[in-house]
Design a protein around this nucleic acid. Structure first.
Length: 220
DNA sequence: GGTAGGATGGGCT
DNA sequence: GCCCATCCTACCC
């Protein structure tokens, strides 16, 4: 099985891949950039909440301006206030009344833009994640979707507006950066601007969103 | 391997 | 009242 940290063997006599050592926390300047750049550059970084952590393997960019799929497209409301605020904060919203999705706010203060975190490759606190997601049978199902990963990581709407450059929810570099190829596709599960190429995944990674989406049509 | 339908509630028109 | 940036189960090849 192909993973960000190498090949995972089904043979228990083969030692597991080394646990990635965490590097420094991403600073605010990382987020204070164009949304598409940040969405792409978040791939391979490590989302950490408490004792759980996972490599970000799938993201989507939600732009300001004429991106009608973005919550901010309807203007500044109580819900979207965080998206218009300073970069480096969490935007957590409730979807379908049952699940919560994590975004990271980007672009300069006052300019809307955020990146939806869609899938993680678990790297720490796997036992914790399994307890939080009993429906997941395989490691690949633990955090392979935006609603799944918030459950697995224990991220709730209580973290809406949290500063992700300090505190319990942060994004870190891996201690050793690894090279990978990136694929770009249309975003999943939206109707407006459905063909815009704003979804980014680590090529070949087995932990990206599963299921029957119109996910084909790779742009690059 | 695949698809269809239901759960469930906040935000906005 | 309608629309969702979703997930799970049941059921069918």
């Amino acid at each position: 099985m192909l993973s960000f940290y190498g090949r995972i063997s089904e043979d228990s006599s083969v030692p597991p891949a080394p646990r990635p050592t965490l590097g420094p926390i991403l600073k605010r300047a990382f987020y204070d950039r164009p949304t598409v750049e940040v969405a792409r550059d978040l791939l391979g970084k490590i989302l950490v909440h408490g004792n759980a952590a996972g490599v970000i393997v799938e993201t989507e960019a939600y732009l300001g301006g004429d991106d009608l799929a973005a919550h901010s497209a309807r203007g500044l409301t109580e819900r979207t206030r965080v998206i218009f605020g300073p970069p480096g904060h969490a935007y957590v919203y409730v979807i379908y009344g049952m699940y919560e999705c994590l975004n990271l706010v980007v672009e300069a203060d006052g300019k809307p833009g955020c990146v939806l975190i869609r899938a993680l490759e678990p790297v720490a606190g796997v036992h914790l994640m399994r307890r939080r997601r009993p429906a997941a049978r395989r490691l690949e199902d633990l955090a392979s979707g935006p609603g799944k990963l918030t459950l697995a990581m224990g991220i709730t709407r209580a973290l809406n507006g949290a500063d992700v450059t300090r505190g319990g929810l942060v994004v870190r570099r891996p201690a050793v950066e690894r090279a990978f190829e990136t694929d770009v596709t249309p975003r999943i599960g939206i109707r407006q601007c459905a063909d815009w190429p704003l979804r980014f995944i680590i090529r070949g990674n087995r932990f990206v969103t599963k299921g029957t989406f119109r996910a084909a049509g790779f742009v690059r």
